[in-house]
Structure formats: structure tokens, C-alpha cells
């Protein structure tokens, strides 16, 4: 199994200012890059009072400058504005990172959609059309797109005609094929992923019990080979202390309260014990290994994206949790029957 770090949000929470929040992202990305993580992720939300990162490609580019090999995943909201902006941000990230970009377009929350004056029905079509445009824009061919919401190029009568009637997005991605996965955080996205045969990422908002049926629904439509890699996001915290959950309870609660406010999750965010059973991966290294192994045995995961930075978590606490994770958890999933002496250290 592969392991990612993130998605980061760089929000202002607890005593952490925005400037510090982005410093934490950079420092954690550096450590991830040098301690065996496979990827680092940044997500987008707009108009969040805590300043949740609204432009994840800028944060991702910043990570690229501070790391050498780790893949850089971005979860941008698709469908609010013209798809070419997203296409261009992504190709620039892919080139400046030396071909390390992964893009997972996600859906807008209702407050974001409304801020752009877009209805729910229109939004689904805009999301789908955005995915179609991205696939064309990242292919090494000039293209033309005619959809309900966007025509590219538009061919407006006041402009000098484009003889070919096509455009080619520049620069081209550094990778021959820029990885595009669908954010499976909403029913429409999951069915679209299956229909288009694109891999899907399931989010922290899907409870453990729900995951298997979401993959099954997908498998019923998409050819099995298309769904790889199978990616999942989970909030993860590792600590050697007696009661790891108590160390992150308030922060985890904050996280899920936000999901609830955005209309993406139903439940009681104050019930942290409940959350730890349904959604979180929290414990000492052995407990965390057990929890990941259990998820893997049911879901057959390829890539677990670990949201280890809880809102407001200070840097030292994050780095300590990451350090335990990379030494005492990751090795367990790199070799079957790993001798315990290696994981625990001799």
C-alpha cells in the first residue's frame, strides 16, 4: 500500500495563523518527502471563515519547491469557473514539480455553488463538462469542445477567426498522462467516475461501514481494471501516549463540524468516540496498523491518504505523529510478515 499525507487545508485554527499554517504545510511536506511518504495533498474550499485554502495549486507549487520526489496531489473544486483555468493551473504544477502532479477534482459545497449563482442541476453538468475538457486539454492534440456550458474556442464574432477552430493548452503536462481521479465525495461524482472508467478517491466523510458498498456500486458499472488505484482519505493520528484520542478530540470534532456545516456529512461531531469508530484512524502504532489492516481487508486499498494535520494542530505534534507513522506503521504494509523486531526497532 502507498501512503499520502494530507489533504492540507492551511486553515486558521487554534493559535495557528494563516502564515504559520502554510509554514506547517511546508515543513510537514519536507519531512514526508524524506521519510517514505508517497504523496502530499492539498484541498480546496472557498469562503470558509477559517480561510481553508481556496487556491490549492499555489500551495501545491510551494510544496513542489520544498520537496524532491513525493507526488503532489491536489483536490480542486471543479465546475465553478471555466475549466481551462483548472487545466492550466494543473499543467503548470506538473511542469514545475518535474511531473509529480495528481489531480482529483472535487464537488462544490452548496455555499460555494450559490456564491457563483449556479443551480444544483447545472452544477452536475458543469462538473461533468469540466472533466471532459480536462481530458482533452491534457492530451497532446489541439482540441475543440462544444458543450452546454462551454464552447472552446467560443468563436465570438468580434474576434479574429481561429483558422483551425481549435486550441492547444500550453505547456503540455510533464507526465505523458497527468493522473486524473474523481473525488467520490458525492453520489453524482461516484457514478460519473464509474461511467467514465476513471479511478475514484473516497473521502473522510464516508464512514467505514459505507465504503464497501460505494466501491461495489462503482464496480458494478466500471470495468474492474479501471478503478485502480483505489484511494481513500482518512484522518489519522499516531501517538505512543496512553490516550491518543484525547489528544486530538477537539480538533477532530472541529474537522467534522465543518463537514457537517458544508452539508457533506451527517452525524454528531461532538461524539468523538463515535467518530473514532466510524471515520478516524487514531491510536498507538499497533492500534493504527490494526485499523488500517481492517480497512484494507474489506476494501483492498492501494493508497491511503492520511490527513494527519488536524485543524489547529501545532507543528511539533504533527511531526511526532508522522515520525511514528513512517517508522512503525508504514513498514508493516511494505512487506507481508514483517518481523516485529524491525517495526519496533532493535
Amino acid at each position: 500500500m502507498r501512503f499520502g499525507l494530507g489533504p492540507f487545508a492551511a486553515e486558521q485554527a487554534g493559535n495557528i495563523s494563516w502564515m504559520e499554517a502554510y509554514e506547517i504545510v511546508g515543513e510537514a511536506a519536507r519531512q514526508a518527502d524524506s521519510t517514505g511518504f508517497d504523496s502530499v495533498w492539498v484541498a480546496e474550499r472557498q469562503f470558509s471563515a477559517d480561510g481553508y485554502c481556496p487556491q490549492p495549486f499555489i500551495a501545491a507549487a510551494n510544496i513542489a519547491a520544498k520537496t524532491e520526489s513525493v507526488k503532489i496531489g491536489v483536490l480542486p473544486i471543479a465546475g465553478l469557473t471555466h475549466p481551462l483555468y483548472l487545466a492550466e493551473d494543473a499543467v503548470v504544477l506538473d511542469n514545475l514539480s518535474g511531473g509529480r502532479a495528481i489531480v482529483v477534482p472535487i464537488n462544490a459545497a452548496s455555499h460555494e455553488r450559490l456564491a457563483y449563482g449556479i443551480t444544483e442541476d447545472d452544477y452536475q453538468e458543469r462538473y461533468r463538462e469540466t472533466i471532459e475538457v480536462l481530458l482533452k486539454a491534457w492530451a497532446p492534440k489541439a482540441f475543440r469542445h462544444e458543450g452546454k456550458h462551454w464552447t472552446i474556442p467560443a468563436g465570438l464574432p468580434e474576434h479574429t477567426p481561429i483558422p483551425s477552430g481549435t486550441v492547444l493548452v500550453q505547456p503540455q503536462p510533464a507526465q505523458f498522462e497527468l493522473p486524473l481521479l474523481i473525488g467520490g465525495f458525492w453520489a453524482y461524482g461516484r457514478s460519473l467516475a464509474a461511467e467514465m472508467g476513471l479511478p475514484m478517491v473516497l473521502g473522510a466523510i464516508s464512514d467505514n461501514d459505507a465504503l464497501n458498498s460505494l466501491w461495489s456500486d462503482y464496480d458494478a458499472v466500471a470495468p474492474a481494471a479501471a478503478r485502480r488505484p483505489k484511494m481513500l482519505i482518512r484522518d489519522v493520528y499516531v501517538s505512543a501516549n496512553d490516550d491518543p484520542l484525547s489528544e486530538v478530540a477537539d480538533m477532530a470534532s472541529y474537522q467534522f463540524k465543518r463537514y457537517s456545516e458544508w452539508g457533506m456529512w451527517q452525524g454528531d461531531p461532538a461524539d468523538v468516540t463515535g467518530l473514532s469508530k466510524s471515520s478516524l484512524i487514531v491510536g498507538n502504532p499497533e492500534q493504527v496498523i490494526e485499523q488500517i489492516a481492517a480497512l484494507d481487508s474489506v476494501n483492498g486499498l492501494d493508497h491511503l491518504i492520511c490527513r494527519m494535520h488536524f485543524p489547529g494542530m501545532p507543528l511539533h505534534q504533527l511531526l511526532a505523529s508522522m515520525s511514528l507513522f513512517s517508522r512503525e506503521v508504514i513498514p508493516e504494509f511494505r512487506m507481508p510478515d514483517l518481523p516485529k523486531q524491525i517495526r519496533r526497532g532493535i
Binding site: G26, A65, V91, V169
Partner: peptide
């Protein structure tokens, strides 16, 4: 600029994030 054969930079703020990191 955008859509020019030489790969002219279309996304300045993304590139700015990279320079900030360097």
C-alpha cells in the same frame, strides 16, 4: 500568455507559489 507554441506561462499565481517556496 496562453495558447502559444512555446509553453508560455498561463498561471502566474501557481508559479508564484513555487518561487515563494524557493
Amino acid at each position: 500568455h496562453r495558447f502559444w507554441y512555446d509553453g508560455y506561462l498561463p498561471s502566474l499565481l501557481t508559479a508564484g507559489g513555487y518561487i515563494a517556496g524557493a
